[in-house]
Design a binder for these strands. Structure first.
Lengths: 155, 155
DNA sequence: GCCGGAAATGATATACCATATCATTATCGG
DNA sequence: CCGATAATGATATGGTATATCATTTCCGGC
């Protein structure tokens, strides 16, 4: 996706969320959207410099990412130490607990909502073990169909 | 748990897995078992020095951890960047895909097997999204009952 | 026993991820 | 316009992880 169209999507997202993003936060969100794959904070600093011809220190990137994730416009993939824009940033779906399918080969990520029935089962299992589920975010290591296909041929 | 008894448990684990552990690998496993909570590779290096009066470089710790995780005697908690001994290291249960309940407060971790019905549902959902589940390890952010209880009182 | 290759470990350097802290700038209601 | 608050900059530093080459240990065959 081109940065230009990502910027307008970011604008759209901020309106939808009824949040007025500063121009830098909007730019960072746009970079995340344009990336279409998880990127690290330091990568974002590089992308920012390249895309907007202005250098932003990583520390600031982290703060903007904090803001974006707190407002559900982006997510942090804890298992990858990378960030990704929320798939529902511009749409109306309220998106419950997120579930990420991460291709171990090409690192493509698909965000989905955790299936309601799975969620309930998980909660039950957790409760039985003497815990309370607080912040369910599933990160599942997978292969996307393309990579799985490619893998088979070399087996 | 005392280091001494952890050592014999580590020994037991290596016999069960039909793997002959080098003394250092066994020591690292024992440290993990004695810790009873997730520890980082660098922490392990410190613990090793304290427990065995010998300094082991972190690089070597990482390699031993690789070995232990490959042989299912330990796990890496990707969301924490820490390691933990496998709950089934010394027992006969074949333990399927692991699921970790992580208390966000006290960082206690409980390992369980992913419920079979949940596993199947997950696989279905993943497949529907065009992916193949390869390495399912769930890391669920929770509160343990103790911390949840303590939290309520201060609400 | 000892020789040679393979496996394990050591040593060193370096890259990457993340946060603490204080200074500066931008924003906005009164 | 002023002052408070939020946002960003600048700098330092700590934690996690890997790459690479050197050395030691282990072990089977002679």
């Amino acid at each position: 996706m081109l940065l230009q169209s990502a910027l307008s999507r970011a604008e759209q997202a901020s309106e939808r969320a009824e949040i007025s993003l500063t121009s830098k936060r909007k730019n960072v969100l746009a970079l995340l959207m344009a990336a279409e794959r998880p990127v690290s904070a330091y990568e974002l600093a590089d992308l920012y410099r390249e895309g907007f011809e202005q250098s932003v220190p990583p520390m600031s990137i982290y703060r903007m990412l904090d803001f974006l994730t707190e407002n559900n416009l982006a997510h942090k993939l804890n298992s990858e130490n990378k960030f990704i824009s929320c798939a529902h940033a511009t749409c109306e779906h309220s998106h419950g607990a997120p579930q990420f399918l991460i291709c171990e080969q090409c690192h493509k990520v698909k965000e989905a909502a955790i299936d309601k029935s799975i969620f309930i089962e998980l909660e039950k299992a957790v409760e039985k073990a003497g815990f309370v589920l607080t912040n369910p975010q599933l990160e599942l290591k997978c292969l996307c169909n393309e990579c799985a296909q490619a893998g088979k041929q070399t087996d």
